[in-house]
Each structure stands twice: as structure tokens, then as C-alpha cells.
Write a protein that binds this DNA or RNA. Structure first.
Length: 293
DNA sequence: AATTTATGTCAAT
DNA sequence: TTGACCTAAATTT
């Protein structure tokens, strides 16, 4: 899935393009028919992300909570054409002339595939496919969800001390802790592997064996990697000096990571073959040469 | 045409 | 720890 940076991009997109707009909401697939009815015709007031959750707030006081899960994705269309945000499986689509109905809403193309939610405004439309969660909740419901989430480095209200309290008391491997959304929100399989590499930390070290300085370094690096992700639109964790063509942009996909998906390939820093192992059901990647402490 | 894969999470065991 | 969830693109047959 899309890791935290994608959700923050989505929130920014909704705020910029549809904030303050009245929404026509439907569920072409039908699985969200009841929820769509509850927010159809409302005005979008807020859009925010916390970890991998997206919250869209309406003038009724309701929130639409969306979690993309492993393969959820949004498709957007407006006068500039179509594009995708979410699971990495799409490219930009065609451009077309926008038509509007008598109420001023854009007439979106017939939905293709399993569109759980379609949002339409006067300027464009958004289709959601394959989310693991999509529900209308109250403000209390939203707070309850957020209470179970750890600090999100991309949010101004993030308190790294909360994460440190859990990490520094846990015997669990730091690589597993970083994936727990109640410890730190927004990290996925790529960021966890890459930030541990960049810090030179052995992924199997117990959380309580980390020093405070190591944690502070990790937190800062995760924050800047996530910010890069929001800005660039995808995850790139390699420093220019570790890429074959330091001056080439955009960075080729094959040069974006230090360890992820590079099992057996030589480490970009020390040339040791990259290792892979299963950890709590997810594939962990690391460099046995660089990550020894 | 069928199978595999993906940046995830939860309930059940 | 395992399977279920449930979607579309990529890969294999």
C-alpha cells in the first residue's frame, strides 16, 4: 500500500481541489450505497491524514474515513485529464472535454471496474477502488480511530515521545515496532526497511536496546523521508552519491531504494548481498554488512 | 487465460 | 502464525 506520504498527498489534493465544494456521492459498485446516501449533497470542509487513514470532513459533522489497505487507489479526473493516487499501478489517462449537468456537476465517464465511491463536484470527480476501509463516522468515531494511532511525523501534533515510550520498553524487534501503527503512524514496509538501513541499525535489535539518540535520529530521518515522499509523489531513499547517475531526475525506480526488493543484490554502500527474511508476515530487507549495531 | 503480486490490517487459531 | 479481505496490473502458462 501506499504509505503515509500518499495519504497526506491525497488529503492535500482534496483540500485544494474540492475543499468548500458540494459533493455528489455515489457507490457505483453498491457496497457503499448506505454511506454514500448519508453524505451525498454535503459540502467538503476538511481533508486530513493520520498515518494511513484519510479523513474527509463534511458540513454535516460527519467524516468519511478511508483506508487504502494493500491495493486501494483513487482515480481523479478534471479538466486536466485523469491520474491516480494510491497503489502504484496506474499512469495518467486521457484528456477530455468536461461536460456538466443542469446542477453544475461534472459529468464523469461511466465507472469502470469496482468503484466503491464516486465523488463529483463542479470541477472534477474522484473514484475510489479497493479500499480496506470506507465508512462514514462521527467526530467521536474519528477521535476513537486516532486514539489508537501513534504519532504521525507528518502531522504538526505529532509527539515522538509517545512512540519512544513504547519502543524503549519493548523487547520486540525495532523492525516490527516501526510497522505498528499504534507506535508510529504512516510507516510501511519500504520506509521501515530503508530508514533502518540509513541509520545502520540491525532490524532485529530490541526496541528497548535503542538509545534515545538513535530514536531521535530515526524519527527525524523518517520525517524527512516522508516529506520527500509527499513532495516527489513516490518513495526515494537513496542519497545521490549512492546512485549510479547522481544527477538524473526523476530517480529511476531501480535506484530508489537501498535494500527493498534488492535481495541478493550488492549493497550500494558496502557491496554485501542484501538479505531478506519474513518478519510477522511481511518481507524484511536489510544489509548484513551495514546494519550491525 | 490463469496466476501472481503489491507500499496493509484484522480476526481467528 | 495463518487466512481472509478484495482490486487491477504484471507475469506466467
Amino acid at each position: 500500500m501506499p504509505e503515509g506520504h500518499t495519504l497526506h498527498r491525497l488529503a492535500a489534493y482534496f483540500a485544494k481541489h474540492h475543499g468548500g465544494s458540494r459533493l455528489r456521492v455515489s457507490s457505483p459498485q453498491g457496497r457503499f450505497a448506505d454511506g454514500a446516501r448519508r453524505i451525498d449533497g454535503r459540502t467538503l470542509l476538511d481533508a486530513e491524514a493520520h498515518g494511513k487513514h484519510l479523513f474527509l470532513g463534511f458540513d454535516s459533522g460527519d467524516w468519511l474515513r478511508v483506508h487504502l489497505g494493500l491495493y486501494g487507489a483513487w482515480t481523479f479526473g478534471d479538466a486536466d485529464g485523469e491520474r491516480y493516487l494510491g497503489a502504484p499501478r496506474a499512469r495518467n489517462g486521457r484528456q477530455g472535454e468536461l461536460k456538466r449537468d443542469s446542477a453544475g456537476f461534472v459529468v464523469a465517464p461511466p465507472p469502470t471496474g469496482a468503484v466503491r465511491v464516486r465523488l463529483v463536484t463542479a470541477s472534477g470527480w474522484a473514484d475510489l477502488r479497493g479500499p480496506s476501509a470506507c465508512e462514514v463516522i462521527s467526530d467521536e468515531g474519528k477521535q476513537a480511530v486516532q486514539a489508537r494511532l501513534g504519532p504521525d511525523p507528518l502531522r504538526p501534533d505529532a509527539d515522538p515521545e509517545r512512540a519512544w515510550q513504547m519502543i524503549s520498553r519493548s523487547r520486540t524487534a525495532v523492525a516490527a515496532l516501526l510497522m505498528r501503527q499504534d507506535v508510529i503512524a504512516g510507516i510501511g514496509n519500504i520506509y521501515r526497511a530503508e530508514c533502518l538501513f540509513r541509520a545502520g541499525i540491525d532490524p532485529y535489535r530490541a526496541g528497548r536496546d535503542l538509545t534515545r539518540a538513535e530514536w531521535e535520529g530515526l524519527w527525524d530521518d523518517i520525517g524527512s523521508l516522508l516529506e520527500d515522499g509527499v513532495r516527489v509523489g513516490r518513495i526515494v531513499t537513496t542519497r545521490p552519491e549512492h546512485r549510479p547517475d547522481p544527477g538524473v531526475f526523476p530517480v529511476p525506480r531501480s535506484d530508489s531504494f537501498y535494500v527493498c526488493y534488492r535481495t541478493g543484490d550488492p549493497c550500494r554502500v558496502c557491496a554485501s548481498p542484501i538479505s531478506q527474511a519474513d518478519l510477522a508476515g511481511r518481507t524484511l530487507y536489510w544489509c548484513p554488512g551495514c546494519q550491525r549495531h
